[in-house]
Nucleic acid binder design. Structure first.
Lengths: 259, 259
DNA sequence: CTTGACCTTGACGCTGGGTCAACCCTCCAT
DNA sequence: ATGGAGGGTTGACCCAGCGTCAAGGTCAAG
């Protein structure tokens, strides 16, 4: 006959755990000797080891009880199910490992790969790190609000970057992004942007996107919030008869303000 | 700006969890809008996703806080450590899977492989299943009390089984193990056992074991508890001048009771 | 007889939130 | 303007699976 600590040690559990199993009725209370000590037999060892095998597999104790007190085919089914969960858990941990490695490598897990690639392309064009951080934050906000649109938006952005004028536009954002009203470069930016807009209108791309108004508003306001100079550039373009940013519109000539 | 549910959804957590992180100071409380709603920016998204990445890896939230607020080399070390734990956990789960498979196959995980092999050999000799269960339980009790001796004991048992007389002895245990005083077969068993003992004495094996007295007592009492007929056989042998079971002793001739 | 290692019951603590409850804010359709 | 849906807010209680005292009774050895 065994004492509780012998039983516990052999099964690889603590004495406290064994008593817990008694309390919840998972392991039957054994006989006591004359001094009140519990005395265990081989059946208790077998049961306890089964309990641990299942519990180690992550099975809640209540289900362990069900399984151990069920018929053999029910037991086999349950074990099958548990094994499936174990395999899934192992895969999950492997995924966690790779995410952890990416986190340690300094990757921004807050954004889908497409956006990361886009930002890398900007960086490759010589765009300053401070501006890229602004863009990154803006894309995070957009991705958080419309996660399923982000890939198609980024695809459009990539197309835009195929245009050398657009590349020139971005190169303005190199270095300090602290634009101030009166900076003469703002006019240069506006000139480039206007050329791009004209080309877009000529190519019939205006109004050709599949995004709804609400989303266009989101893009515009996010970009305006993040890029301080954008407001000033937009003001100039507005004088020249343009409206919009994400979606370009030409204001009718008769409503143009006097230049 | 994001609401709490947008933030939570994007990071793949519940609103409740985000508020929990605020309460424990893991994620800073953001500004509120005029109606008291929390408004989140991109930095919160980044921080929350980092929290989740670490928490998914099983890191307790208190340590997550430490890590995120620490320097880069401390962070890298911590991640290294976590990844080590993850690998260990994956190996543990794979071990659990194999134990689970053995459990489902009806194996007795309560005994080391050596004992299982020994019992299989008995089964192969035609020993009855009921007796084998008795032996199994006895070995479980012994293994639980002296786990590091069990392998050498079993090795001795295997040697014994090389003797045809011992095999004959075991074959008596086939079928019902309910021995009763007066059963003539008990004398047969005693005869065989005596032959074995004489041979052991002649081979100089008596007293040649490396086990201490306490352990010999344990073996004897366990076997006597489990095998009901053993007592009767031992009584006959005692009359013939033998003592012991695990460790054989020849009682000096002058102390022999009259036969 | 003492000492130290066990045994007993009982109660509280811990992680990481889930799950109400009770109430406020905003927006949209009527 | 009104009512309802669908957000948001705090607060309080609840869970598993034990760990960790606390406050003693028992056993074996010296």
């Amino acid at each position: 006959m065994l004492t509780i600590s012998q039983l516990a040690a052999y099964a690889g559990v603590t004495v406290r755990a064994v008593r817990h199993y008694h309390k919840i009725g998972l392991l039957p209370e054994p006989e006591r000797d004359r001094s009140g000590y519990r005395t265990y037999d081989a059946a208790a060892v077998v049961r306890l080891i089964r309990i641990r095998t299942l519990a180690d597999a992550g099975v809640p104790l209540a289900k362990v009880q069900e399984l151990l007190d069920a018929g053999p085919e029910e037991f086999a089914d349950g074990v099958q199910e548990i094994d499936k969960d174990l395999r899934a858990e192992i895969r999950r941990l492997q995924g966690t490992r790779s995410r952890l490695a990416r986190l340690a490598a300094g990757e921004h897990l807050a954004l889908p790969q497409s956006v990361v690639d886009y930002l890398d392309r900007l960086r490759g064009l010589g765009v300053g790190e401070r501006y890229i951080e602004l863009e990154r934050d803006a894309w995070i906000m957009i991705a958080a609000q419309v996660p399923d649109l982000i890939d198609s938006v980024i695809a459009k952005k990539h197309e835009e970057l195929d245009d050398p004028d657009m590349v020139r536009l971005y190169s303005f954002f190199t270095g300090e992004p602290d634009w101030r009203a009166g900076d003469p470069r703002i006019v240069e930016v506006a000139d480039i942007l206007e050329r791009l807009m004209i080309r877009a209108v000529e190519a019939g791309e205006v109004g050709a996107d599949d995004f709804d108004d609400q989303f266009v508003d989101l893009m515009d306001s996010t970009m305006l919030e993040s890029a301080p100079g954008a407001e000033l550039v937009l003001a100039i373009l507005k004088e020249r008869g343009w409206r919009g940013w994400t979606r370009i519109e030409r204001v009718p000539a008769d409503r143009l303000p006097p230049s």
